[in-house]
Design a protein around this nucleic acid. Sequence first.
DNA 1: AATGCGGGGTC
DNA 2: GACCCAGCATT
Length: 350
Amino acid sequence: MSTLRDPADALLEWYDRHARDLPWRIGPGPRARGARPDPYRVWLSEVMLQQTTVAAVRDYFHRFTTLWPTVEALAAAEDGRVMGEWAGLGYYARARNLLKCARVVTHEHGGRFPETAEALRQLPGIGPYTAAAIAAIAFDRPETVVDGNVERVIARRFDIRTPLPAAKPEIAARAGELTPEARPGCYAQAVMDLGATICTPKNPACGICPWRDDCAGRLAGTAAELPAKTPKKPKPVRHGIAYLARRVDGAWLLERRPDSGLLGGMLGWPGSEWTEGDPAPAPPIRAEWRDVGAEARHTFTHFHLRLALRTALVPMERTPERGAFLPLEEFRPSDLPTVMRKAFDLAAKG
DNA sequence: AATGCGGGGTC
DNA sequence: GACCCAGCATT
């Protein structure tokens, strides 16, 4: 019989001492008395946390749960209002799917989230990771979560040198073997906390890691270099022109972008196509356009953008060819995605 | 299996 | 600057 402690127990003991206090978690006291976190809050936090750091999510989570405390309340919200509150968080398909999911849960599941990963997986915006996370954290199911943190922790612990994404099946299998039957929700959060605070991408703090004695990567000296990844393609630079038209009564000319594609469903300034060559001018209304000295620079997932800015003051009676004038009292700069917000700050206030 | 899809922290 | 992140949908 081995004298080695079960690795899951070692990690859970570490988690009990070091768990971060996060708004979507419940305290250790209530948890010990059998309380479970609200599935709505678990779901909302997990969707917000997709490819997004805890620091970026905090304020958004607080605003969303204040505005919409239940899934039914969110389901009844106006689309544009939700997109506006999501503005700045990125990956806007998440917000569209969030609303879809809230409405399905409200109208087809009686306002209750399904309790199995398989059933959760059928909902919009819920993939393998999020389904496992909700099932484990909210419903205490022994599901294995595999996110970027887990991939790094597992690749190091077992010294898996196959580059991602090819290594995903092996990593998932190893992660599954470690998942305990007891306290699966705590365990899932513990592995991710470990990856976020100790087993970090750079300069991992191996000396204080609860798994330091059975980490193959640490013993082999490869930990800090793992996981290996296939190289990414360089980002090209695209150029565009944005047109910020202000009507004499203070209204701004904006357009709602189509649901699919970049910044889908978000409010934005009308403009040219974004091309790697010179963009073709595309003023949305007849006016005397004035070039703003500065350009808005922004980096998206797969390209850099340099956006030239043009402004104009237009009279009341003139009608736009694209977009619609939004009255000043209905215009909130915070409803804009970041690149459009940068353009506004430069053109209107710069 | 590959690609499109944001933005901010961190080094 | 590049890299990374509590990934998902689409093709």
